[in-house]
Design a protein around this nucleic acid. Sequence first.
DNA 1: TTACGTACATTTTTT
DNA 2: ATGTACGTAA
Length: 789
Amino acid sequence: MEKYLSQLNEAQLEPTIQKDGPMIIIAGAGSGKTRVLTYRIAYLMNQGVDAFNILSLTFTNKAAKEMKERISTIVGSGEAKNLWMGTFHSVFAKILRFEGHHLGFPSNFTIYDTQDSQRLMGSIIKEMGLDKDIYKTKQIYSRISSYKNSLITVKAYFNNPELKEADAMARRPKMGEIYKEYVDRCFKAGCMDFDDLLLRTNELLTRFPAVLAQYQDRFRYILVDEYQDTNHSQYLIVRALADRFQNICVVGDDAQSIYAFRGANISNILNFQKDYDGVKLFRLEQNYRSTKNIVHAANSVIEHNETKLDKVVWTANDEGGKVKVHRSLTDGDEGRYVASTIFETKMNNQLQNSDFAILYRTNAQSRAMEDALRKREIPYRIYGGLSFYQRKEIKDVTAYLRLILNPSDEEALKRVINYPPRGIGQTTIDKLMVAANGYGKTIFELLENLDKVDIKINAGTKRKLSDFTTLIKSYQVMNETANAFDLAEHVTKTSGLMREFNKDGTPEGITRLENVEELLNGIKDFVEGQMELADASDSLAEFLEDVALATDLDADKGDVDHVALMTIHLAKGLEFNHVFIVGLEEDLFPSAMSMNTRSELEEERRLFYVALTRAEKQAYLTYALSRYRWGKLVDSEPSRFIEEIDDEFLEILTPTEERRINPMLSADIFGDSKSKIVNPNKIRYKPAKKPVLKKGGTAAKKEPEKFQVTTPKNLKPVAKTTAIDASNTNTNLFDSELAVGSLVKHIRFGNGEVLKIEGAGADVKAEINFQHGGVKKLLLRFAKLEVIG
DNA sequence: TTACGTACATTTTTT
DNA sequence: ATGTACGTAA
């Protein structure tokens, strides 16, 4: 242990060996907080605290796993095994498996992900006959989610006239009824959504003092990482559990609070000292990660926030290169710049792909980056977005597994009852739902007793229904004895899922099959891992829980060396040698949705701070003058965040005077006449500021259509093998290029022959006979075709 | 009941 | 540009 403690600096050592009592560690970016947390846990165990009595809550499962491994190397894996470590959601899901029965939940409750929850919400809104344009599923879902995170139960909602008033004002007077129905339906289905895992834990600890006492006694030492991103619900759980021993250690950085949108409450960390008596405060301010230029640049940005704790992050590291700022014309150019910079930097400095990360504000931005990386043949991996487990084919398989485990799971049932198609249509399902509600039974219970129930379904359909029921029941029987892998494999083969996936031979269909394959392999790995743990008691249930709570970051596939692409949110806690922060444009970053209030803008700024502090050696900030959004080319201007960085830490690679690649590009050719036109209609909130980084001209902004016609791409001679750019709106091109009889290549359908060309202007369509997929009619404006002859 | 076409909305971030 | 929703034809 001594050996390890000697690796810490003084500021880190103090909190590490502070054993008892409440404490808070304000840890600046890159200051080694994970190391402190890890060593502190090891130290506690070294001091005789039983691993069994330590609860450590992390932000991702991956962080938990890594921490556990590091602790194992210090104290031995036998000891570390008993540590309870994980995200709030996964830890309390486990506790609810044991204790949920107090609340009327079965121990095999299933977990609804966002998709399931929203589907359920959607069908409730539909059943209640409400206007779906006013009651927008997503909005209703997030509203209810925020109620739950603030511990506003259905009852509390109805007792709160202000809330009802607010929803009525928003023309949604039925909000409470929807909320109630949603909660009832989840309960009846034996399901919990993400928020329930916390809310129900609170309910459990509040209503059952004996249970609370039991866990208080168990968790004598509690550590919470990323405390700045806890919501009210999590805050109360921690308070309740720590109340008895008061050995609570929270770690966080107010400057990195970026989850307010999902209920995180920054005042949890700001007010921690008021919540407990005799709180010891520690600060970690030395950054070991980044160069001086990066640290100082980040500091100068965060200075613009009003709400923050007093803290000065500094570093003894090298000066390093200045933060590079690059402007491109379009998002496509931005991608090409990033890709070629990675390519060259890698060559010149003998770096690996994994030394680079591309961070963006929204998932949609990944596409331009992907295209460019692919052209350069740079391996990359996209983290987040549609995660593996959310893909349709994977959800189809897991829905069967969920249903086996918990036949009440309504969303799982609705998903598979007619998939693969077995002649059970919407009408039948609707009838079943109505009847189920009438009898107060679940749909599956109804299915088991079809002949005893008064329901108007014809005999043929009834047979189909009972076949389905028998099928599921046979799986349930198998689940008694078989392990999760054998069962899953059996299900995919015998349910017709495999046949269904096999049916289409398109490249996407093959990808789907591969995904299912991968899922099965994953289950196999999981089962084998469980065997080693000796108790393969309920492998299916545990696997499904892992699936529901997994983040993309957690998945650790033995990947080849790759560049990482992810949103900034996902990048929290990670570090990379070289970091590209792309799309630094007003309305994108900061997001247009987040500029209404000061606090929203400050969160965006913290997000930028997080992004910048991911970089160890070199940070790049890039933006484009126009980019595709909603399928249209939209002009944009540089983000205020660039301007907020002190000039001395920046290197502007593309100085204000625009490089004119092509004289036609200069918007100035339209002259002063246009720039004198003032558009009085353009009113837009903008704090007083003068962009330091001006763009070439303003005419383009006002007359985008005219401007586009002169885009240089259109003027370039198009070689035979040139891919037709989707951004190209000059349709004359197609006439000269494509003719009946031309041979073309499509990224998805392969080679094909043009049979017919029709339409005019932007709507030119071609009918093409493809090798794969047969005859298709494609809009040339969108289809990326390569002319090959 | 299903399959297919057209219309439509949709982009902020996630456990 | 992509996914979903709804209507119509088979």
